[in-house]
């Protein structure tokens, strides 16, 4: 008799815990659609790509194009700007990583690595970067600041002619978007 009672109790315990678990897991699962509805949907995620021909850009000229709702800075750099960027020793940089979506995540922040596309092709004249300060998302001003390159007016982050953070609160260099050259001057971003 007593063994039957124990069995009954353990069966009840099992049903009690199982019901509670199903209830808790069910509630958690039901919450997910309400959380996920806020995430970017498929139409936003669809990697919209932007094509741009840099041939008309004169030396020292830059344009801003839109990609995924973000500004992308494309600049035809002057010889002096390229020189300034290449001669900086890596040890002087605040962020030593290239932050180039086309390269491995640990690629060093040399100027060569900042201009490479997905196939490793590069033209040091053309710098393509996402024009969003890595601090709190403002759009930096061009041809401004101590390096006469990019300067964020919001909280004073200073970027050099390679878009690398040199001083101020921003933690990272300006991001390089995924892009590739389809001809010598034409690129596809995204």
């Amino acid at each position: 008799m007593s063994s039957t009672t124990t069995q009954d109790v353990s069966r009840r315990d099992f049903l009690y815990i199982a019901t509670g678990t199903v209830g808790a897991v069910g509630t958690a699962l039901a919450a997910w659609p309400f959380i996920d509805q806020m995430n970017p949907d498929a139409s936003v995620l669809a990697l919209a790509s932007t094509e741009f021909d840099m041939a008309p850009l004169q030396e020292g000229q830059g344009v801003t194009v839109m990609w995924r709702g973000k500004p992308v800075f494309i600049r035809h750099r002057t010889k002096k700007e390229i020189e300034d960027a290449t001669k900086v020793p890596l040890a002087e940089l605040k962020d030593p990583i290239a932050r180039n979506a086309n390269l491995p995540p640990d690629a060093p922040a040399t100027d060569e690595n900042r201009v490479k596309d997905a196939n490793g092709k590069a033209n040091p004249k053309y710098l393509v970067q996402i024009g969003i300060c890595t601090h709190l998302g403002c759009v930096p001003l061009g041809e401004a600041g101590p390096f006469n390159a990019w300067f964020c007016p919001c909280h004073g982050s200073v970027y050099d002619t390679s878009g690398r953070i040199r001083s101020g609160p921003a933690p990272r260099n300006l991001d390089i978007p995924p892009f590739k050259y389809v001809s010598d001057t034409k690129i596809v971003i995204g």
């Binding site: 959380i35 806020m38 970017p40 995924r68």
Partner: peptide
Amino acid sequence: VQWLWGGFSVDNP
């Protein structure tokens, strides 16, 4: 941040 935005930038969502 992308969850807060519902996209890749501050936009209609």
